[in-house]
C-alpha cells in the first residue's frame, strides 16, 4: 500500500506503527509520530495499523534556539 512518510511516498506491506519504526531502525523512545495530523501515543504504536493513503510525520529533537 502507498503511504507518505515525512512528505515522501513509500510502498509498505500492511503493518503497525511499531513495526514500521522497527523496519526503519528507529528508537521509539526518542521520537514522535503523527498520523493524518493526529498524534499516535507511544503506547499505541503496536496496535495502530497503517492504512493506505496515511500521511505520517516522524520527528525528533535537533539543535535549536
Amino acid at each position: 500500500m502507498e503511504v507518505q512518510i515525512n512528505g515522501e511516498p513509500r510502498t509498505l506491506e500492511p503493518m503497525t506503527v511499531g513495526e514500521l519504526l522497527r523496519s526503519l531502525d528507529l528508537d521509539p523512545a526518542r521520537l514522535a509520530v503523527e498520523r493524518n495530523r493526529d498524534i499516535v501515543p507511544k503506547g499505541e504504536y503496536e496496535t495502530t495499523l497503517l492504512a493506505p493513503g496515511d500521511k505520517l510525520e516522524i520527528v525528533r529533537f535537533v539543535g535549536g534556539g
Binding site: N6, L26, G63, G64
Partner: peptide, 9 residues
C-alpha cells in the same frame, strides 16, 4: 531549547 524536525529516514 531544542527544535523538532523530521527524522531523516
Amino acid at each position: 531549547t531544542v527544535a523538532v524536525r523530521r527524522v531523516n529516514i
